[in-house]
Simulated assay, not measured.
Amino acid sequence: MKKIGVFITVLLAQITFAQVNRFVYQVTMKPNVADKSDIKTENAYLDISADKSMFYSENRIKRDSVMRANFQSGGARGFNRDQMESLRSVINYSIEKNKKDQKTAYKDRIGRDIYTYEEERPLNWKILSETTKIGDYKVQKAETDFGGRKWTAWFTTDLPYQDGPYKFSGLPGLVVKAEDSTGDYSFDLMKNYKIADFPETSTFGNIMKVKRTDYIKQQEKYKSDPTAFMNSQRGSGGINAPRSRNGGGENQNPAEMRKRMEDRIKEEAKNNSNPIELK
C-alpha cells in the first residue's frame, strides 16, 4: 500500500508539473505618437510550462480559432468580417522564451510571411529595496533600460517563475507589473489559471529567420512600399490577384484593391508610430 501511495503521489506531481500556467495581463498602449489620447487596451497571455513560455495576444488565439472554423466550413466565403474586425489586435507579435537555452524568440508578420529573430540584448536589471503589495502579491521594484525606454517592473517571489510579459525575464520572480517611464506602455497581471497545454496557433506564409536589424529593415520596406514588398515575397504570388467578386457579387478591380490595401497599411503605420521598442 505504501508503494502504491508513493506512485500516486509521483504521478499527481508529474501531471501537475506537465500543466501550463496561464497568466493574463492587461496591456495598455499609446501606439500613435501624434495622439497620446488614443489609448488601446487588450489582454495578452503569458503561458508558462517547465520548458518554455509564450506571450501573445488573446485576440490572436480567438482570430485563429475563427479562421480555422471558417476554412473548415467553406473557406474565405464563410468569413464574418465584422467578427474578424472586432478581434483585431495591436499586439501582432508573439514571444517564446526557451528555459533550457535561455533564448528569446520574437515573431511578427510582415506582409504575407512570418519573420522571427532571436533577441541578443540582455536585460540588465537593477533590483531596488522598495516593496509594496499589488493584489494578493507582495512585490519588489526593479528597473532596466531596454529598447530605448526606461522600464519599472514589480516582481513577486510568491510565484515560482522567473518570467514576465513581453521580453521581460531574469528577475528572481514573476513580473506582476511593468511600465515605461513615459506611461506609453504598461503590463498588469489580472489573473492566472491552469490550462492543459499550449493552444494551437495557425501559421500562414513562410517562416523567415533573420537578425533583429534585418527584421527592422524589412518592416520599414513594407511600410514605405507595401505593394513592391508583397510582390517580392517568395512563394506568395505577389498581389496581382485576378478580378474577384465582393459580397454583393460585383467585380472588384485589382488596382482598386491594391490602393485600398496600401491606404490601410499606411493608416496602420500612422496609428502604430510609437512602437514599444524605439531602438
Rank of each mutant, 00 (worst) to 15 (best):
residue 146 F to C: 06
residue 121 R to I: 12
residue 38 D to H: 14
residue 86 S to P: 08
residue 48 I to S: 03
residue 102 Q to K: 15
residue 82 D to L: 11
residue 146 F to T: 02
residue 165 P to M: 07
residue 161 Y to D: 06
residue 131 T to N: 05
residue 175 V to C: 07
residue 69 A to F: 00
residue 55 F to W: 14
residue 133 K to C: 04
residue 130 E to M: 08
residue 97 K to N: 14
residue 100 K to Q: 11
residue 122 P to A: 09
residue 40 K to G: 01
residue 162 Q to L: 00
residue 101 D to Q: 04
residue 161 Y to V: 04
residue 146 F to I: 02
residue 139 V to E: 06
residue 75 G to C: 03
residue 120 E to T: 15
residue 95 I to G: 06
residue 135 G to P: 12
residue 116 T to Q: 15
residue 63 R to L: 15
residue 54 M to E: 14
residue 69 A to H: 03
residue 97 K to M: 06
residue 91 I to T: 08
residue 101 D to A: 02
residue 85 E to N: 14
residue 149 R to C: 03
residue 114 I to V: 15
residue 167 K to H: 12
residue 52 K to F: 05
residue 71 F to L: 04
residue 98 N to G: 05
residue 65 S to V: 01
residue 131 T to G: 04
residue 136 D to R: 10
residue 132 T to I: 04
residue 75 G to T: 07
residue 134 I to H: 03
residue 152 T to I: 11
residue 124 N to L: 13
residue 153 A to D: 10
residue 166 Y to K: 03
residue 94 S to Y: 06
residue 174 L to A: 01
residue 103 K to S: 15
residue 141 K to G: 05
residue 104 T to N: 10
residue 61 I to W: 02
residue 115 Y to Q: 00
residue 157 T to R: 09
residue 157 T to S: 15
residue 147 G to Y: 02
residue 163 D to N: 11
residue 171 L to Y: 03
residue 130 E to W: 02
residue 130 E to D: 14
residue 77 R to T: 09
residue 137 Y to A: 04
residue 125 W to S: 07
residue 43 N to Y: 13
residue 176 V to T: 03
residue 164 G to D: 01
residue 155 F to L: 01
residue 59 N to L: 01
residue 88 R to E: 12
residue 36 K to L: 15
residue 90 V to Y: 11
residue 92 N to M: 13
residue 142 A to K: 02
residue 97 K to H: 15
residue 37 S to Y: 03
residue 169 S to V: 02
residue 166 Y to V: 03
residue 62 K to L: 14
residue 113 D to W: 12
residue 168 F to Q: 05
residue 121 R to C: 00
residue 93 Y to P: 00
residue 125 W to G: 08
residue 147 G to Q: 09
residue 140 Q to L: 01
residue 103 K to E: 14
residue 78 G to F: 01
residue 144 T to G: 02
residue 155 F to H: 05
residue 140 Q to M: 02
residue 160 P to D: 05
residue 50 A to S: 09
residue 94 S to M: 13
residue 84 M to F: 09
residue 89 S to W: 00
residue 95 I to C: 04
residue 72 Q to C: 00
residue 64 D to G: 10
residue 65 S to Q: 13
residue 147 G to I: 12
residue 70 N to S: 15
residue 94 S to H: 07
residue 68 R to E: 12
residue 60 R to T: 13
residue 158 D to A: 14
residue 139 V to K: 01
residue 54 M to P: 00
residue 93 Y to K: 10
residue 114 I to N: 15
residue 124 N to K: 15
residue 150 K to T: 13
residue 143 E to R: 12
residue 103 K to Q: 15
residue 77 R to P: 00
residue 49 S to I: 04
residue 42 E to G: 11
residue 50 A to K: 07
residue 68 R to D: 13
residue 64 D to P: 09
residue 172 P to S: 06
residue 45 Y to S: 07
